[in-house]
Design a binder for these strands. Structure first.
Lengths: 229, 229
DNA sequence: CCAAAAGTGTTGTCCATACACCCATGG
DNA sequence: CCATGGGTGTATGGACAACACTTTTGG
């Protein structure tokens, strides 16, 4: 399951489920079930480490290697989940910087980025099998992890401004954050970001922002809590 | 993977791995590898929901049904993890109130509760395969979830005092908490605990404590953060 | 000069910590 | 009466939200 930020909205990559064939990084099932959208996925050959397998797939699919973030989400299993041979699905969650436009589709069913907020609207995609549940779990995981890990940087390019980082939180949480306070909070969290001493190119009015890259922290102390209740 | 609190210490249930046979709730592998300790586990028959399967196993193993907490931890897979036929292991994590003494062992290899703090000491158990990694992951998951979920109540009996609850945090985190402040924090978190209006039996000096049961909250707002840094 | 975005300063409020103190029980 | 543990009150310090203000760019 791939998450990214596009036009200030948190988006998930879905594959149209209505024709046979496969794309470079996805092996959707043959069109036995109802039409709809599903998550890209495939099968493990059996004797490979799960994390390594997922990383290899992700790299093959997107070309992204060093950047972003990839982690295991959860394992879904049991009967009545999809018409494939009974078994379990180990879902992985990837967070990536804005990929170049719609993803490549050499041949086979089309894929596109869907804003997660559109999933439950009439115009949104209908997810087949238990994939809606997986997407909900993944989005909730990402939203939660933004609070206490430096995950937000995975949604940014290697060099980013604090406004870029703030927009990740705003998009994922659907809130507006106060820029001055956000800046102080991030800079006061040790090893969250590292200043590069350079500035971004100005773009249409406004003072150019300083550039940062991700720091070495694996957890945020203190966490950056979302205003709840 | 079963966690509980025994004598104020966080403990994990391990099975001795040195003789064939099986116990009611565990099916350890035949003694092909080195001697040591492993987590109880078994095999899924294929067509059952993973969560339901884990819950059924847990109930069969301990007799515990309504209380405690059970959740999926992570899936571990790939080669070189253990001599069993290649495949993946879906680890589940259960948190339970103090079970009656060492767990039952009708026949087969022995099991016992090990304090997690002893795992890396010379006197501690040597874990085989990748089970040490699983235990570390599970303990860390439990420690983290105490902060932002009402998980601590799962380690207590159905009716408990705030001191019982506090001792869960103290054991899991290895810190001492200030009883007055802990009390205020818990009571000010909506739906964390519900007062019963009764008191526990006094036990050897000291004022009897009020009794509580778990509330309906699924997440703590605000979280009960451990003092870090 | 004006608008827009980045960044700094300031202040009031809230909350957690630390600790003094009171309550209820057993010996 | 004392020791022990449960429960309440309270002052102080730190953190954060809100917002005024300065800086630096494009038009």
């Amino acid at each position: 399951m791939l998450l990214t930020l596009r036009s200030g909205r948190l988006c998930v990559l879905l594959i149209q489920h209505d024709q046979p064939g496969s794309v470079a990084w996805a092996e959707p099932v043959a069109p036995a079930g109802p039409a709809g959208w599903l998550l890209p996925g495939g099968f493990v050959d059996g004797d490979e480490d799960l994390d390594a397998h997922a990383a290899r797939r992700l790299a093959a699919a997107t070309g992204v290697t060093g950047t972003g973030h990839l982690e295991q989400l959860r394992t879904y299993g049991g009967p009545h989940r999809d018409p494939r041979p009974a078994g379990v699905s180990v879902a992985y969650l990837a967070m990536l910087a804005n990929l170049p436009q719609p993803p490549p589709r050499p041949h086979g069913p089309g894929g596109r980025w869907w804003p997660v907020e559109d999933l439950d609207t009439p115009d949104g995609p209908a997810l087949v099998f238990d994939h809606r549940r997986i997407v909900v779990d993944g989005v909730e995981r990402a939203r939660g992890k933004l609070e206490y890990t430096p995950l937000a940087a995975a949604f940014c390019e290697d060099e980013f401004t604090l406004a870029d980082l703030r927009r990740v939180y705003e998009a994922a949480w659907g809130v507006a954050l106060d820029p001055p306070n956000f800046r102080r909070k991030v800079l006061s969290t040790p090893d969250f970001v590292v200043p590069l001493g350079r500035r971004a190119l100005p773009r249409g009015g406004g003072r150019p922002a300083e550039l940062y890259r991700r720091g070495a922290a694996t957890a945020l102390h203190p966490p950056l809590l979302r205003r709840s209740v």
